[in-house]
């Protein structure tokens, strides 16, 4: 992020001052970062192009031409099939992801707040260390007890069960992130709220949460991508009728008889990845700002 801004700033300075002092090696080295970045961007964009082009081709064209060529006779047939097959999954994914993201963020913020400002320093530190540990244990380890627990609660094989599983599995990470962020908040701000008579809940909802919106955005994005792209929780906990898009997508890719419909598979993959892509595209700026405001006390 730093390199392109410096190059634009360099080229953005008035030409007169630039030419007045010709920097000896500047011309060559100034374009090097731009070239490197362009190369990296191309490397990342190429697969996307192959997928996009492929999804607009007929199977005939895929067999005949190169992967890199643009579609000569573009068709939406593959997309029609993909959307038809994945639409129920899209709805399920939304029904799982949206509540799970909101709940895990809100609960993470609340528990992070409680931990950050706990009266009992030692125990809150011990608890935080346990949470860090928990956040990095692969969730496969928890699958069996979680299945038993949800079955006992009567939520196994339902959307609510999948949401609950996501919330529980995500809570450790969101709590740690929020705790770290809240500890960076200026002490005087919290003291001002105390003087103004705000209690624990009031301070959280009226002061701490509103000033932590960038952090909320970061955590929500993180949770959103994680939960949207999740496969195993959806497969295990959601139940047959409630399978999210990712699970249905693998069904499409995995269970073909005869000729593989590459174009449909490519369209399905793009369709499944579309929402996170759009969300990232529009919130990328917010994401970067959020990360920074967490690092440098904002």
């Amino acid at each position: 992020m730093v390199l392109p801004t410096t190059t634009t700033r360099a080229t953005g300075t008035p030409a007169a001052t630039r030419q007045a002092i010709p920097p000896p090696h500047a011309r060559w080295s100034r374009h090097l970062p731009t070239a490197l970045l362009a190369g990296a961007a191309a490397a990342f964009l190429l697969p996307l192009w192959v997928m996009l082009a492929g999804s607009l081709k007929s199977m005939d064209e895929i067999h005949r031409g190169s992967l890199l060529l643009p579609p000569l006779r573009p068709t939406l047939d593959a997309w029609r099939q993909a959307v038809g097959a994945l639409s129920p999954g899209l709805l399920n994914s939304l029904l799982i992801t949206v509540p799970a993201v909101l709940l895990s963020t809100l609960l993470g913020a609340l528990s992070g707040y409680a931990l950050a400002f706990s009266r009992w320093r030692a125990s809150s530190r011990a608890l935080s260390n346990l949470l860090v540990l928990a956040a990095f244990i692969p969730l496969q380890l928890f699958l069996y007890p979680a299945v038993l627990g949800l079955a006992w609660a009567g939520l196994f094989g339902s959307l609510a069960g999948a949401v609950l599983a996501h919330v529980v599995f995500g809570l450790a990470l969101t709590t740690i992130l929020f705790k770290g962020h809240f500890e960076q908040l200026p002490l005087e701000l919290l003291r001002a709220a105390q003087i103004d008579g705000a209690g624990f809940a009031r301070t959280f909802f009226s002061v701490v949460l509103p000033v932590s919106m960038p952090m909320c955005a970061v955590v929500m994005l993180l949770q959103f991508t994680g939960i949207w792209n999740d496969f195993i929780v959806g497969l295990v906990f959601a139940g047959a009728e409630n399978r999210p898009m990712t699970v249905q997508f693998t069904n499409i890719v995995g269970t073909t008889f005869g000729e593989r419909a590459y174009n449909v598979e490519m369209a399905s993959a793009l369709f499944t990845a579309a929402l996170p892509l759009v969300v990232y595209f529009f919130s990328g700026r917010l994401f970067v700002r959020g990360v920074l405001s967490g690092a440098v006390k904002g």
């Binding site: 200026p186 005087e188 701000l189 003291r191 001002a192 009226s206 509103p210 000033v211 919106m213």
Partner: peptide, 11 residues
């Protein structure tokens, strides 16, 4: 109380 950093609610 008035604080050194003002401590106003920024939002």
């Amino acid at each position: 109380m008035v604080f050194q950093s003002y401590a106003l609610y920024p939002h």
